[in-house]
């Protein structure tokens, strides 16, 4: 037998291994895929809110004269900006969405400090990463504090309450609320609560990353990519809040 063989050059595509077809590391890809699935979860919550809102009559009168429904015969959906119009320290003033706007701004700012942490990580500047991660954690905790205040205000309600079908109702719980149909309060608790859980876990992840930066773990590893992965999650939390802000509070 002849010992010579003729070789046809193999066609190698970038999917045959050894390369990253999407030009992103395994960890980052998996974070992206997780975020897509999480986006579907949040989207289904917000869409469910939309369905239930369509299932209830809308308020017909002038917006500036809005009052909460006083009869279960005409049980219209409340206008969110008339529910969330209180601001800490400014008792009795009507500031529609003022506090929620501030919360949105705080979360966007903590997203910005996260971008700066990622940027510093790419330059392997440990001190700067430490600084910006710490600011990000502070922003996240501030946001959670604001949310706690907002929940507390929502649960306790206004001083005079609302008389509906002859019964005076104060604030909100899972059985009754002064603002309107029960599902409004339930969706408020579930959607902002689920987002709050995400912020909480994001803060914990950021604290762990901050700890590792301080301990020099990433310095030894030679790569600050973990900041990028944590950053993706943190930006996603901010992104979800942008949608919650619009669909729950504005519309």
């Amino acid at each position: 037998m002849s010992s010579s063989t003729s070789l046809t050059p193999l066609e190698i595509s970038k999917w045959d291994g050894g390369e990253r077809p999407m030009n992103a590391s395994y960890g980052k890809l998996m974070m992206w895929f997780f975020l897509v699935s999480d986006a579907f979860t949040f989207a289904s919550l917000l869409i469910a809110y939309g369905v239930v809102r369509y299932m209830h009559p809308a308020y017909e009168g002038a917006y500036s004269k809005f009052e909460f429904a006083t009869s279960s015969d005409d049980f219209y959906w409340p206008i969110p900006e008339k529910v969330f119009n209180a601001f800490p320290g400014l008792h009795g003033m009507d500031i529609p969405l003022g506090f929620v706007g501030l919360m949105t701004f705080i979360l966007i700012l903590s997203s910005v400090t996260m971008v700066l942490a990622v940027e510093a990580g790419e330059r392997k500047s440990q001190k700067e990463v430490e600084k910006w991660m710490l600011w990000t954690v502070v922003g996240g905790i501030t946001f959670l504090g604001c949310q706690a205040w907002e929940w507390s205000h929502f649960i306790h309600g206004s001083a005079e309450g609302v008389v509906r079908d002859g019964v005076r109702i104060f604030g909100a719980n899972l059985h009754v609320n002064e603002y309107g149909p029960q599902l409004f309060a339930n969706f408020f608790f579930f959607i902002t609560g689920f987002h709050g859980v995400h912020v909480t876990s994001g803060v914990i992840i950021n604290i762990v990353i901050f700890y590792n930066v301080v301990m020099g773990t990433y310095e030894k590893r030679g790569s600050y990519e973990m900041i990028e992965k944590g950053g993706l999650y943190w930006h996603f939390v901010d992104l979800v809040w942008v949608f919650v802000f619009t669909f729950f509070y504005l519309i």
Binding site: P21, M22, V112, V115, L232, L239, V242, F245, T246
Partner: peptide, 29 residues
């Protein structure tokens, strides 16, 4: 409101999350 929300979301996804600078395939997926 809807338009402004998608504007904000676009900037967050494309710049902050850096998706605008990834490969076409990743964006698509």
């Amino acid at each position: 409101f809807l338009g402004l929300t998608f504007l904000k979301a676009g900037y967050i996804i494309m710049e902050f999350m850096h998706l605008g600078h990834e490969t076409f395939l990743l964006k698509f997926v």
